[in-house]
């Protein structure tokens, strides 16, 4: 299955955020999107999902135009700010998203919390892990992860990276995070958002320096990115 975004335009007043973005994503593929703060990554994701209305966007599923790919859970989004309500209990969330019993056990084990507690009692990291896992274990074919590693400890970043890789076999995943190491590690293709458009780059740090996303190679300042 293939999801395509074509000619995505979005502007606020005089400022152009998206300027004719094209993007394709197939199931069994992970595409990483990198870009500086305010480059328009989140705007693109929200436009694709239907949370905001862009000036123009053409979404296609297997070549046919689709106005709402989020309907029937074909496409899901993890927004930067999260999507779970504080007052909801974890087991209610798992019920609504139709998560199977064995997956529920895995979620409880990984977030180290009983599923009868409310979302508000989880730490930021636990909450983020819960959101990522709920989307990974539900039946959607495409998922957009906007900063899935926010608030996670290094160990949990590794656990989530592995889980995303494992569950991507039947899903197309679009992922963006300022923690670029795991993105380079996970992604089959990497795109960089510059001046309102997406450019395809090689999956390495040199390219990130060349495009101004990084100032120096991490190896030249004494640490190694996990690529």
């Amino acid at each position: 299955m293939k999801l395509e975004v074509d000619s995505a335009y979005y502007s606020v007043g005089e400022k152009t955020i998206l300027s004719g973005v094209y993007l394709s994503l197939t199931t069994n593929e992970i595409v990483g999107v990198l870009g500086r703060n305010g480059s328009g990554k989140s705007t693109l994701f929200k436009s694709m999902f239907g949370l905001i209305k862009p000036d123009y966007i053409n979404l296609r599923i297997d070549g046919s135009r689709s106005k709402t790919p989020s309907a029937n859970q074909l496409l899901q989004l993890l927004p930067q700010n999260g999507f779970l309500f504080d007052s909801t209990k974890i087991n209610e969330v798992l019920f609504h998203f139709d998560i199977s019993v064995d997956k529920r056990d895995n979620i409880s084990k990984l977030i180290e919390s009983d599923d009868s507690v409310r979302v508000r009692s989880l730490s930021i990291g636990q909450r983020r892990m819960l959101e990522v896992m709920v989307l990974l274990y539900s039946k959607s074919r495409f998922i957009i992860f906007d900063e899935p590693f926010t608030g996670l400890s290094p160990l949990n970043v590794e656990i989530m990276t592995e889980l995303i890789r494992k569950e991507s076999r039947n899903k197309g995943i679009l992922i963006s995070d300022h923690l670029y190491g795991p993105i380079l590690e996970l992604a089959d293709r990497v795109l960089i958002m510059e001046a309102g458009t997406l450019k395809s780059i090689e999956n390495n740090e040199q390219q990130l320096v060349q495009h101004g996303y990084l100032k120096y190679l991490s190896t030249s300042i004494g640490f190694k990115a996990s690529t």
Binding site: K46, F49, L51, Q73, L77, L78, P79, F83, F85, S140
Partner: peptide
């Protein structure tokens, strides 16, 4: 708008 993401998801 992110609150609507729960239902849209």
């Amino acid at each position: 708008s992110h609150r609507l993401a729960f239902f849209m998801n």
